[in-house]
Design a protein around this nucleic acid. Structure first.
Lengths: 201, 201
DNA sequence: TGCTACCAAGCAAGCGCTTGCTTGACAAGA
DNA sequence: TCTTGTCAAGCAAGCGCTTGCTTGGTAGCA
């Protein structure tokens, strides 16, 4: 019964997941509006009408991509935030987690689509998203608060958080995986830039 | 003959400029692909075929918008860079100039389109743009070098410049003109974040 | 037999762009 | 002063094509 049983129902619906992955990649590369259903279908070896068996509309595909991106990055950064190391090490781990989702091969298309294509979501989905996004950003706000308490930073205001996330998110525009810098190096360099040097004893 | 002469030819062709402005606003709001010729024409009170009297293609409209944005921001920042003040004051003036183009009412649509819609340019136009962009970024690189020489910053590497421009450019995502922060305040806050405090003597 | 997952075909709407023509302003010749 | 010709600027209509999405059918498995 072990080998022959092939999970009767659904067997995990991974054609649906295939579609989400392909949609993510294309939305990232060409943008939501410039990506056609025929592009997506072709990328998974289907005809143009078939994706609609799995998704009601193109919007729903965008929704799936964007939610995937946000939950993945939230999970990764939350894990880093609770690692229980020193404030500096925790902060750097959070930077690495955020950059890993944004630039790493698995999931970068989801995160990048999240950053750049949200304006094409209709209001209902957008509202759902904003809640999650606020929760995510409050994690960073708390991290800055901890850094200030540890004397590693002078400014833990909201604007400081926005500058920090801006520098992080903008890496999508210039990072090349085949370039000379690793994600960990970039994270460390940003930490150095933002954190005050502990004053010479 | 003085008063009656009404500048016989052309009288300044500002319908073309109207189209560029409208295209810039719409490209910024909805994205290039999601903006239709009919949108643009409607915004300036024309029928859908008429903009093609002024531009050969929709691409050409994007080109005009993006070039306008890049030359404007280059001019503004170059002027600030040569103001001959102290390194710190010069740097803050450059930040203000960049943010002014990006967030101020006149020209923000051009700059924002420049940042977000360049991928829809065809390769020929893109190459033309990259030259100008490299020149612009080297201005910032030089500014960082000066700051380091003045002992105001520890890191003047290319990555440091990318972080800085990332924080700047990301302001488009969160700045609201009716919000509580002025552009000058934001510039000052970013300068504070990035520059080392001169050590207490 | 029924259900899942897909295909073949195509529809209505909308797309960028072209075409032939109109309109008002103006300058030069008679 | 009238006519004639030219020009910039735009309109009305529509062409060929693409878009998101629908529908009826069916192969393969349980």
């Amino acid at each position: 019964m072990a080998a022959s049983r092939s999970k009767p129902a659904a067997e995990e619906p991974n054609r649906r997941a295939d579609i989400v992955r392909a949609a993510g990649r294309l939305f990232h590369e060409k943008g939501y509006s410039a990506t056609t259903i025929r592009d997506i279908a072709g990328a998974v070896g289907m005809r143009s009408g078939s994706p609609f068996y799995h998704f009601k509309t193109k919007q729903d595909m965008l929704r799936a991509v964007v939610l995937e991106g946000l939950t993945a990055i939230s999970t990764a950064v939350a894990e880093a935030a609770h690692s229980g190391k020193s404030p500096r090490a925790t902060f750097e781990a959070m930077l690495r987690a955020h950059l890993g989702q944004l630039l790493g091969i698995e999931g970068r298309d989801f995160a990048a689509t999240l950053l750049h294509e949200t304006r094409h979501l209709d209001p209902a989905v957008l509202a759902e998203l904003v809640t999650l996004k606020d929760r995510y950003e409050s994690m960073w706000q708390k991290a800055l608060k901890d850094l200030k308490r540890a004397g590693l930073i002078a400014d833990d205001s909201q604007v400081a958080r926005l500058f920090l996330l801006g520098a992080l998110n903008w890496t999508v525009q210039w990072y090349r995986p085949d370039g000379s810098r690793t994600i960990a190096q970039i994270a460390r360099q940003l930490a150095d830039l933002v954190l005050d040097k502990p004053r010479g004893k």
